[in-house]
Simulated scan of single mutants.
Amino acid sequence: MSDNNHLCLLGLIFLSSLLTGVSGVDDVHVFISSGEDVHLPCNNALQDCKSTTWIYNNRFRHSEAVELINLGEKNKDIERHERLSLGSDCSLNIRNISTEDYGSYICQQWTGEGGEQLRPDAGVYLHVLHVSSSHTEISAGLSVTLFCQLNSYPRVSCDDWIRSERIDLFWVNQAGVKSDSRYQISSSSDHCIISLNKTLLNEDHNREWRCEVTQRDQVKTSVTYTVKSSGEKTSHQSVLESHNVSIIKDC
């Protein structure tokens, strides 16, 4: 089968999986914080990863699917190929996750020359949590907004998606309190984003705020933001809770 025909067939099967769902293999949802390394499982893998192909799609950034791995070999023509690797279990490993990496990943198993698909598609949805600030340098008396955004796929109304999947996105301080009278928290229905607005006091130096994502009351991932006064860089720390697994499956 020619390369063009092979890619066309991949695209048709990929589109079919988006419209009808994956047959025989559960979809997996992975939550990760930006800057972390992620491991995307391939739940239809064979013993020999030479049959494995990984396809990526984000319909808001790409008009067509992008082939990351073709029959066990990495595609070196894509921008992020240096951050990709194939695990011994045919999983897809991505280093230093960015907000551009969120989207749908499909693991497929193909014969080499015949072009026959050996097993049903295995889908993985990657959701990326990212924190940013309205100011790069901050000091007492300054009004600062911290933004926490969950980049998710498929991109439907955030309210609908959060409600149906029982997702919660919120800010807590270092004592675990969600808010107090001095802090104002607002959210957006168009995007999965929650902002924390505060006027800084002297005692806010080195104060930590943590944005968390939970699914069915279990923490999936979180990002800690440490307030530093002018002259010191503000620090961010991504945290994956060790007692929770950042993967959920749709039945």
Rank of each mutant, 00 (worst) to 15 (best):
N70P: 08
C107G: 14
N70H: 12
S195M: 05
L71C: 04
N197W: 12
I78D: 02
W110D: 01
P120R: 01
H243I: 14
S17L: 12
S186I: 10
L9I: 10
L86R: 07
C8S: 00
I78R: 05
N4G: 00
S186F: 05
R182L: 13
Q215A: 07
A65N: 13
L142H: 13
R216G: 01
Q108W: 00
R155F: 15
E82C: 04
L10Q: 04
K228A: 13
W209I: 01
R59C: 15
H135G: 04
K76D: 04
M1I: 06
F14L: 08
K228S: 13
S16R: 12
H236S: 09
D101V: 08
C192L: 07
N151A: 03
L68K: 03
S246Q: 11
H62G: 07
L10N: 11
Q215L: 03
Y125L: 15
Q109V: 08
I94S: 11
V219S: 09
V223P: 11
V144Y: 10
Y102Q: 04
D204M: 09
T234P: 11
S230C: 05
G176Q: 07
L84I: 15
H29C: 09
D180K: 03
V22F: 08
S157W: 09
D77F: 05
I194Q: 07
S230K: 09
